[in-house]
């Protein structure tokens, strides 16, 4: 089955069984290895990416549902020249330990900040429920607040 979508701003078409998890397509067919496989059961969040701006667990998302949609993976979140506020905050707070879970957390955080620009600790607890086996949660929380702060100052400059 042919499925066409935009990924990180580029049009893409794949010919694959429509029930293949989007994660498989992204990693194995499109060679975008930033999105990780953790559990394959929609339980850990390592595979989180955006489909039309919504955080989606791609291990549990049949690629046929991506037809005509805009997908963003961690590779498309920002660029080396222009980091996304979440990437900048993550670097400033030196969040990762082993790093495996981090792309999923960063994508979930970017989706949260789009909808809740100034999240409270409670918002973070309710929305960011990914799993980090290195338990970097404490630094992650600081980085989420920091990313919101970077957004705020960027917005105040542009206003």
């Amino acid at each position: 089955m042919k499925i066409a979508f935009n990924i990180n701003g580029q049009p893409q078409e794949v010919d694959v069984d429509g029930n293949t998890p989007l994660l498989w397509v992204v990693r194995d067919m499109l060679n975008l290895k930033g999105t990780k496989f953790g559990c394959g059961k929609a339980a850990c969040g390592a595979c989180t990416l955006h489909v039309d701006g919504e955080a989606i667990r791609s291990c549990s998302y049949a690629v046929k549902f991506a037809e005509g949609k805009n997908i963003t993976t961690i590779e498309g979140l920002g660029t080396a020249e222009k980091l996304h506020p979440v990437q900048q905050a993550w670097m400033e707070e030196v969040v990762p330990q082993c790093g495996y879970c981090q792309p999923g957390f960063m994508m979930a955080t970017a989706a949260l900040l789009e909808k809740v620009p100034n999240p409270t600790d409670e918002d973070i607890d309710n929305n960011i429920v990914n799993v980090c086996r290195c338990a970097t949660y404490y630094r992650m929380r600081k980085a989420i607040h920091r990313a919101a702060e970077i957004n705020r100052s960027a917005n105040s400059i542009t206003q």
Binding site: A42, E54, A62, A108, A111, D123, V129
Partner: peptide, 11 residues
């Protein structure tokens, strides 16, 4: 909720 929608996992 905002970034943890049913459709994050349920299609």
């Amino acid at each position: 909720v905002a970034a943890l929608r049913c459709e994050s996992c349920h299609q």
